[in-house]
């Protein structure tokens, strides 16, 4: 039996909204470490790895390890029936081919029950090596989203260039080019707006901005984002979900042309 009751139901709604454009389906692994999903996009360019730890839930019960094959589109459809302040409970029997979802209003005066049919999904679980990155950037997630949105107008690729001067995002296309330079700044009114750069060595990588923009849809979940860059290694973009979990995105770089 798997049962997990999430007080902040909106977290699950936002989480599914964030990843459903990138991965259409995936196996949600339920075990003592929490509820986890690792899934690649169909082009094998990007990978989503998310975790909600057991302490995200009250209660969290998982009698044995289970893997729930879920269509993110279908789950998103059902979650739209939940209000933002609803408490969401997920429930599945050990051998079930369905996931039960209960949405409970804060005062328990409205309780809705939905059932999602599960799928058999053959998914490859990738081993992600531990990496010490050349440059790590902590910044406002809204600012990152803005930069992706702006530069996507110019090109399908964005080059991120970390140097002593700061972090430079560049896009060059048919109409011209654009660049945005971010410098370390911890002297801000709101802590969430600070830009912190930890640079071991300079690095320059080019990425498909379409994916960066899709990752940035996670912004409503977290006002900070961390970018981890190393030469010839996929980008790691991490959004922490309070103290209860995270969404990490990995994106393969483009080869210089």
């Amino acid at each position: 039996m798997f049962e997990a009751r999430l007080n902040q139901g909106a977290v699950l709604k936002k989480l599914v909204d964030a990843v459903r454009d990138i991965v259409s389906e995936g196996n949600f692994d339920c075990n003592e470490n929490g509820l986890a999903l690792q899934a690649m996009d169909s082009a094998h360019v990007a990978l989503v790895a998310m975790l909600l730890r057991p302490d995200a839930f009250e209660p969290y019960r998982c009698d044995r390890n289970m893997s729930l094959g879920i269509s993110l589109k279908s789950l998103g459809t059902i979650l739209r029936c939940a209000s933002n302040d609803d408490i969401i409970t997920l429930r599945a029997e050990d051998t079930a081919d369905q996931l039960a979802l209960t949405f409970e209003s804060p005062q328990s005066d409205k309780v809705s029950e939905y059932v999602l049919n599960l799928m058999d999904i053959d998914s490859e679980h990738l081993g992600i090596p531990d990496t010490s990155y050349d440059t790590v950037i902590h910044m406002s997630s809204a600012e990152f989203q803005r930069i992706c949105r702006d530069l996507q107008q110019l090109s399908d690729s964005v080059t991120i260039d970390a140097s002593k001067e700061g972090i430079k995002f560049t896009a060059t296309g048919q109409l011209g080019s654009g660049q945005v330079m971010l410098r370390q700044n911890m002297n801000v009114d709101r802590e969430e707006d600070a830009t912190v750069i930890e640079m071991q060595q300079p690095v320059q990588l080019t990425f498909a901005v379409k994916y960066l923009s899709m990752f940035a849809k996670t912004t409503p979940l977290c006002n900070r984002v961390t970018l981890c860059l190393s030469k010839d290694v996929p980008l790691l973009l991490e959004y922490k979900i309070d103290e209860i979990g995270y969404i990490r995105y990995y994106l393969a770089p483009k080869v210089d042309s």
């Binding site: 690649m40 094998h44 360019v45 990007a46 990738l126 690729s157 060059t172 393969a252 210089d256 042309s257």
Partner: peptide, 13 residues
């Protein structure tokens, strides 16, 4: 600009 690499060339199955 640039050729897109696959994640499978970086991460082990």
């Amino acid at each position: 600009s640039g050729q897109q690499r696959s994640l499978l060339s970086f991460f082990k199955k």
